[in-house]
Design a protein around this nucleic acid. Structure first.
Length: 563
RNA sequence: GCGCCAGUAGCUCAGCUGGAUAGAGCAACGGACUUCUAAUCCGUAGGUCGCAGGUUCGAGUCCUGCCUGGCGUACCA
């Protein structure tokens, strides 16, 4: 029996073999079985695995599902003795109850694959780019960016673990109006600091950090700067401020444990002439046309609600123009798949990007957008007042400083990004059972404690145990089998998480595994008087420790040895 | 008006490309520390899966219509 083959696959093969024999013996009308599923039933009394094969094959076989099931069961061959019993239930489910011993190889497989347990070849090395955060360098990252950062980073990790060649990228909007506005904001604050009367417009950036940057520029460059022409001063301020803020963003992300393979500058698309070239190219293809003094992209012809402007009457390009160039550039870099992580308030943008990709000759099937719903920041159940316009908001750095990186990341990933998220600062700080991050990390720390104890008592001589050689046949308690089954479910969770791009699947998996472990821990002692049982259980909990670590790593959360 | 997301226990949410008796956590109540970490566990209670139709062996899940909430519908980003 191949140890690295999933239980589902084994059972599927057994069923296919049975179908062939049943057909040869004339009990089935065809040896073809429709696409069957082997799944883990919700209820224990429905067995370890269940198959709907008899039901989905009913029309092909032109037989009643239960009759098909009977024929299959009569011809089952189980050379490795993994099936303890087999039942037909309900409308025609075939339920498999497996022997405890059939689960034991899973534990050894975890130890053997170690950091690689759960990794898949689903992606087949395809190149995927995940672009996320990409906040304008006009102010510090806030809570919403934090959720996007946690999700984007986790999605990248999960896809890489599922066998994709992943590149994480941050797109810097360092061009265009918002940067000029930033420069103007800083320049005005700088003038203000020099004692001049200023009129600070509403559409300038209101935050206190603008004053700080202005002060910093004055310290560095001296008060003479104030004598410069406004245009030049604004330009200097814009460059300095954008650079400064970007560095701050990079630091905050690093503190949050998020790193990027590439930081891609929007301005570079203009500097290299890429934006103009793309506009020209689409003009020649007649996809871009002129109307009312502006240039329009024919997005409506590719499924958008209406056409969109790429060059305004005043000759300036829109954000959309550089975005078209950027996404074309991504595909030119050879990515098979491009994933953007956006805030849900940008959803109206999806159709036009899809349209531009389809118009370019690529397929928007290769492009996915992860839309992240809003975060409601709470403190002790009450909403935290925030106003972006007034520049009053809680930054990502504030949150990481207050609740810690692990708690913040874990909570950001606790829900599907399709749903709004309540993030309670008090709850995130609490070191109690209400806080799921400790619930899971505690498993890791507890097992680490057991290992230390085992070393102290001399049950183990070394940390470097040959776990694969340990006899596990004494692991027959129901809680032990339940725990092994939870371990065996990890690769499936990774696959589901990767195929749906939903990291919270890993969160949910971790909560289930942690709960199963805590239940086992409270009912059974790992270190006992019986040496064989002790070693086998150490082997089991050691495997749990590794899977907890692997899963937490995917989410960017640490696995502490001690708490 | 049109579009996207959501509507599941008192609260916050899971529920895999349709499967059997819809699950956790919190809050409530009752128990478990001479023990490898009680940051834990066990038990009790809690439901018209927003509403109405449809598709089929079978619907929380898919389709249609409606209701409610959030967001979006720029020659802004």
């Amino acid at each position: 029996m191949r140890i690295d083959q999933s239980m589902e696959k084994k059972l599927k093969d057994i069923l296919l073999g049975a179908a062939r024999r049943a057909f040869e013996n004339g009990l089935l009308k065809s040896d073809v079985l429709s696409d069957m599923e082997i799944e883990v039933p919700r209820h224990d009394n429905h067995g370890d695995f269940s198959s709907n094969v008899a039901m989905v094959s009913a029309s092909v076989q032109k037989m009643a599902p239960r009759k098909i099931a009977e024929a299959l069961i009569a011809h089952l061959e189980d050379p490795h003795g993994i099936i303890e019993k087999c039942e037909i239930a309900g409308p025609g489910f075939i339920n498999f109850f497996l022997t405890p011993a059939s689960w034991h190889p899973v534990v050894q497989m975890v130890h053997e694959k170690d950091h690689g347990f759960g990794a898949l070849e689903m992606g087949q090395g395809k190149k995927v780019q995940v672009e996320f955060v990409s906040a304008n360098p006009t102010g510090p990252l806030h809570v919403g960016h934090g959720r996007g950062a946690a999700v984007g980073d986790a999605v990248g990790n999960i896809l890489a673990f599922a066998g994709y060649d992943v590149q994480k990228e941050y797109y810097i909007n360092d061009s265009g109006r918002q940067i000029r506005t930033l420069g103007r904001s800083v320049w005005l604050r700088l003038c203000e600091a020099l004692g001049r009367e200023i009129d600070f417009p509403d559409d300038c950036y209101q935050g206190e950090y603008i004053r700080e940057i202005a002060g910093e520029i004055l310290d560095h460059m001296g008060k003479d700067l104030g004598d410069k022409e406004e245009a030049q001063g604004v330009d200097i301020c814009a460059r300095y401020a954008a650079d400064k803020i970007l560095k701050g963003i990079q630091d905050d992300l690093a503190d949050f444990g998020v790193t990027f393979d590439q930081w891609f500058s929007e301005q570079s698309l203009y500097d290299s002439g890429r934006v103009q070239a793309v506009i020209e190219m689409f003009r020649e293809k007649d996809v871009i046309y002129e109307k009312d003094g502006a240039m329009w992209f024919k997005t409506e012809a590719f499924g958008d609600e209406k056409d969109r402007v790429v060059v305004r009457q005043n000759g300036l390009t829109t954000y959309f123009a550089s975005d078209i160039a950027y996404h074309m550039e991504k595909f030119d870099r050879g990515f098979d798949r491009v994933i953007d992580v956006w805030g849900a308030d940008h959803h109206g943008y999806i159709n036009r990007i899809n349209a531009s990709i389809d118009a370019s000759g690529r397929s928007s099937d290769q492009f996915d957008v992860i839309l992240i719903q809003l975060v409601n920041l709470l403190r002790g159940g009450a909403p935290v007042a925030m106003s972006t316009r007034a520049g009053e908001f809680v930054t990502l750095k504030d949150i990481v400083d207050e609740v810690g990186r692990d708690a913040a990341r874990f909570l950001f990933l606790s829900r599907s990004f399709d749903s709004g998220l309540d993030f309670d600062l008090e709850l995130a700080k609490q070191q109690t059972s209400e806080n799921p991050v400790y619930y899971v990390q505690y498993v890791h720390a507890r097992i680490a404690g057991i290992m230390i104890k085992a070393l102290e008592q001399g049950v183990l001589d070394t940390n470097d145990v040959a776990w694969q050689d340990i006899d596990l046949s004494c692991l027959t308690q129901v809680e032990e089998i339940k725990l092994i089954k939870a371990l065996a479910a990890f690769p499936g969770a990774v696959g589901k998480s990767a195929s749906t791009l939903h990291p919270h699947v890993i969160f949910t998996y971790l909560m289930t595994l942690a709960s199963t472990f805590h239940g086992y821990y409270n009912r059974h002692k790992v270190i006992t008087d019986d040496k064989n049982i002790t070693l086998a259980r150490l082997c089991l909990v050691g495997a749990v420790k590794k899977v907890i670590r692997n899963a937490l790593t995917l989410l960017g959360v640490s696995a502490p040895e001690r708490m």
